[in-house]
Amino acid sequence: MRLLFLGDVVGRAGRLAVLETLPKLRARYAADFVIVNGENSAGGFGISEAILNELLDAGADVVTTGNHVWDQREALVFIERYDRLLRPINFPSGTPGKGAGLFKAANGADVLVINAMGRVFMGDLDDPFRAVEDALAACPLKTGADAVFIDFHAEATSEKEALGHFVDGRATAVVGTHTHVPTADHQILTGGTAYISDAGMCGDFDSVLGMEKDEPISRFLTKISSRRFAPSKGDATVCGVAIDVDDRSGLARAVAPIRLGGRLSQAEPDFWSEDA
C-alpha cells in the first residue's frame, strides 16, 4: 500500500499549491490513500466547509486538524456531517466530531486514521497516549485495520518521539504536525513504525511559520499585538511524507519526505517509480 500525507495547509498560498499538486502526486505515485492536515487552510486559522470539499475533491481521503480546528466557528456544525474530517481524539467528551475513523483505500485496504493532539506547551486536554491506546485496542493493526496512521499534532519533539515509540510495531506510521517546519528525522522505528517529528507545512516559507513576517517580529520586539496574523502570499512549498506499507504486516517498509515548490530544497520518494 502507498500512503501520502501532506502537512498543515496554511492560507491561500498553501491551499492553492496543494490543490494543484495533490492530484498530480496521487496519479504519479499511484497512491492508495492520502491524508492532509487542513487546520490552517482558511486564512491561516481553521477550515471551512468549502475548503474541506476542495481538499477532498483534489484527492484527500481524510482531512485531519489540531488546535485551530474550531477557529472557523462553522466547523462546530459541519464536522458532524463529514466522517472524513477528524479533530483530535483526546478533546473532551462531548466535543463535536470524532478523532479516529476506519476508511477504505483505493486498493480495498482498511486504514485506521487517528488524529491526536499533544499536551506539552499546548492545552489542557485528555491524555493522548491513553486515547490512542484505546483506539488501537478497538481496531488493532492487521486484525481490525490493514494500516494505522496517526497524525500527532504537538509542539514538543519529546512528546512526539515518545508516542512514536509507544505505538511502535502497532501502527504503520506516526507523523508529527503543528510546528510547520519539516524535520530530517524520518525513519522506521525498531518495531516497523514509520516516524517523523514534523512533516512541515504546505505554505510560503518566506514567512514566520507561514505568516507574514512583520507582525510576529513586532510582537517579539514589543510584546504588543498590533494586528491579526496574516498568511504569507508567496510561492508555497508542499511538504509531506510518503510511506510504503508492507501489505502482509501493515508496517512500514520505507518512508521519505516530500518537498515540492517554493524555497526549500526539493525532495520526493525514490522508492516508487513514476510509471507504477
Rank of each mutant, 00 (worst) to 15 (best):
L6Q: 02
S93V: 15
L136G: 03
Q72M: 09
V255W: 01
E54R: 09
V111F: 01
K24N: 15
E159Y: 07
A236R: 01
A254S: 13
T64W: 04
K24Q: 15
T177C: 03
T157C: 05
C239E: 08
Q266F: 01
F33Y: 06
H153G: 03
N90V: 01
D247N: 15
L16G: 12
H153F: 01
V255C: 04
D151L: 05
M201E: 07
T179F: 07
R81D: 15
P96I: 13
E39M: 04
K160D: 11
V245I: 15
A138H: 12
K104V: 14
C202F: 07
L136T: 04
A267D: 03
V18F: 02
P88I: 08
V132R: 07
W70C: 03
G99R: 04
T222D: 10
S197V: 05
D57T: 10
G261D: 07
A138K: 14
I51K: 00
E54I: 05
E161H: 14
D247G: 14
S225T: 14
T95W: 09
E80H: 15
P231S: 08
D244F: 01
G191Q: 14
R253P: 01
V34D: 04
A50K: 14
P92R: 15
L221V: 08
P128H: 11
K233E: 15
L112R: 08
G97Q: 07
L209I: 13
S93H: 15
G203W: 02
I114F: 03
A100Y: 08
F220I: 04
D146I: 02
L3N: 05
T177D: 04
P182G: 11
T143F: 13
S197L: 06
V34C: 11
